[in-house]
Amino acid sequence: MELTINGVQHHIDVEPDTPLLWVLRDDLKMTGTKYGCGLAQCGACTVLINGNAARSCVTPVGELGSAAITTIEAIEQDEIGQRVVAAWIRHQVPQCGYCQSGQVMAATSLLKQTPHPTDDDIRAVMVNLCRCGTYNAISAAIHDLAGDVGQEGAKK
């Protein structure tokens, strides 16, 4: 089976029902994409499929065909992704960091669809879990990218 990941074709030999997550992590040794729940509940495994956020733990590779897959490893090659990472650094978003690959992918997907997201858009789209509670920093970083100061980031 052929998969196009970060612009590179990979040949892999797996059952078509194998989740993309484990092909990335175990076959291709791309461990930036995280396993958190395996049940579409946490979002740690988020990647982009044709630019849209997808949860790789519930994405059978057999469904992918020639779709363009982007993982966190190539996020800085993406123009929006690069801006997201820069904002993440400006706002010092990560704590333990485990959820952040997924958060960065989700934010990139949001900004691709909605360049100027409102608070409501952010609440609607940023549904990945973060046990460290970096939510306000995430909102602030996205508002920053959207070119407004936003409400969520307000502190003190």
Partner: peptide, 16 residues
């Protein structure tokens, strides 16, 4: 923080 870039780009290696 010293680890923020790596944590924002999936470069940190956790035990898993």
């Amino acid at each position: 923080r010293v680890d923020v870039h790596d944590k924002s780009t999936g470069k940190v290696v956790y035990t898993v």
